Amino acid sequence: MLQIVNSLRKCVIANLNNVKNISTHVDFKEVTIKVPWGHVAGKWWGPTDVRPVLSLHGWQDNCGTFDRLMPLLNKNVGFLCIDLPGHGYSSRLPQGMFYHVTNYLIMIHHIARYFQWPKVSLMGHSLGGITSYVYSMIYPQNMDFVICLDGAKPMIHNNINVYMAYTIENFFKYDQYCRSNTEPPSYPMEEVKRRVCRPNDNSIMMEHAHILLERNIAPSKQSPGKYYFTRDPRLKSGGFLNFSQDELIEYAQYMEHPIFIAKAKGGSYYEAKENFYEVLEVLKRSSVDCDFHYVEGSHHVHFNNPERVAPLINQFIQRHNIEDRSVGGIKDEMIVDKAVPVKF
């Protein structure tokens, strides 16, 4: 069975226009980490004998979002880039469960406990950046530093009651769809690429879409020559956190650890932008190093133009890579010979 699945996976990759990754740097290992609901999959880049920077992708992306950035980052530090639950090659949450950010926070804590990390280093993009920020906000004593790429403080929604009702109704629709075991809609490869690139004002450049697709699609059994998305449809329900702006301002006062925030000039704030800057001003006073930068590019600038953010991240890490990393390297039981196959 594994041989058949790997064969199908090769079919997906072969049809991604046979485009090569920009990098010849292949110093990563495919890994899986056991968790109570299944496993978390990902790539471990760089040194494996020391504690890495746990790296989280954005909503409906996967750990491939960091493939173009990793070769440009500090080679003395490892990066464990994972697929969030329901994304990429990671297990989905059990039926009937909603993809709340709290689930991602619990996942981070599971991983930190699995490795027995004395401190936690986090990097995240978009949803991954928000998750990283919130984890560092509720566990500031656990952090050595956090890196947020066009996503940091949670957004404040107007009429949260209406938004929550809409989200819950969406969840029931997609949860029922998952229970039907129906194959998702499938599309020709070019349309699949367009659907990956279109969100956030065409944030992803078409020429790089194949990198994210490798962990995101499978060949249709019903429509030969077409492909469907393997991520959990329940992710489309949306998500919410119920912090108020006043609470976020208060909690930011206790975030003393170093924090790096890159704001893409072509990205959106997804809320009243003064909310972001109010919290940023507090972080500049509370953090030992609140390293904030505007970066030219789209919401996925770290993916499209990694050379614009990599030097800034490297400088930040060089300043703050001072905590002990000797505990929490890779475990043999995690390593898989080949990429975990997509779900069919």
Results as ranks from 00 to 15, higher is better:
residue 1 M to A: 04
residue 3 Q to V: 14
residue 3 Q to S: 12
residue 4 I to R: 10
residue 5 V to L: 15
residue 8 L to A: 14
residue 11 C to W: 05
residue 12 V to I: 05
residue 12 V to M: 00
residue 16 L to T: 03
residue 21 N to K: 11
residue 22 I to C: 04
residue 32 T to P: 04
residue 38 G to R: 00
residue 40 V to W: 03
residue 41 A to M: 06
residue 41 A to E: 00
residue 43 K to S: 14
residue 47 P to T: 07
residue 54 L to I: 14
residue 56 L to H: 06
residue 57 H to P: 06
residue 61 D to R: 01
residue 66 F to P: 01
residue 68 R to A: 13
residue 70 M to G: 10
residue 78 G to L: 12
residue 86 G to S: 01
residue 87 H to F: 07
residue 88 G to Y: 05
residue 93 L to E: 03
residue 99 Y to K: 07
residue 101 V to P: 06
residue 102 T to Q: 09
residue 108 I to A: 09
residue 110 H to L: 13
residue 112 A to L: 03
residue 115 F to I: 05
residue 118 P to H: 08
residue 120 V to L: 14
residue 125 H to F: 11
residue 128 G to Y: 12
residue 131 T to N: 09
residue 132 S to H: 07
residue 135 Y to I: 12
residue 136 S to G: 10
residue 137 M to R: 09
residue 140 P to N: 02
residue 142 N to D: 15
residue 143 M to N: 08
residue 144 D to A: 07
residue 151 G to Q: 12
residue 152 A to W: 08
residue 153 K to S: 13
residue 157 H to P: 02
residue 160 I to N: 02
residue 166 Y to S: 15
residue 169 E to W: 03
residue 175 D to V: 00
residue 184 P to Y: 08
residue 185 P to Y: 11
residue 185 P to N: 14
residue 186 S to V: 02
residue 193 K to G: 03
residue 194 R to S: 03
residue 194 R to H: 05
residue 195 R to K: 15
residue 196 V to R: 10
residue 199 P to C: 13
residue 208 H to W: 14
residue 210 H to Q: 15
residue 211 I to E: 04
residue 214 E to R: 08
residue 215 R to C: 10
residue 216 N to L: 09
residue 218 A to S: 05
residue 222 Q to G: 00
residue 222 Q to W: 04
residue 226 K to F: 09
residue 235 L to Y: 00
residue 237 S to H: 02
residue 238 G to Y: 04
residue 239 G to E: 00
residue 242 N to Y: 01
residue 246 D to R: 01
residue 250 E to T: 12
residue 258 P to H: 05
residue 261 I to W: 04
residue 263 K to E: 01
residue 265 K to D: 05
residue 265 K to C: 04
residue 267 G to H: 10
residue 269 Y to A: 13
residue 269 Y to V: 05
residue 272 A to N: 15
residue 272 A to W: 05
residue 273 K to Q: 09
residue 275 N to K: 08
residue 278 E to K: 15
residue 279 V to M: 07
residue 285 R to E: 15
residue 285 R to K: 11
residue 287 S to Y: 14
residue 288 V to K: 08
residue 288 V to L: 13
residue 290 C to H: 00
residue 296 E to G: 11
residue 299 H to R: 01
residue 304 N to V: 07
residue 311 P to E: 00
residue 314 N to V: 00
residue 322 I to K: 14
residue 325 R to V: 13
residue 325 R to M: 05
residue 327 V to R: 08
residue 328 G to W: 05
residue 329 G to V: 03
residue 332 D to F: 03
residue 333 E to T: 10
residue 335 I to P: 10
residue 339 A to R: 11
residue 340 V to A: 05
residue 340 V to G: 06
residue 340 V to H: 11
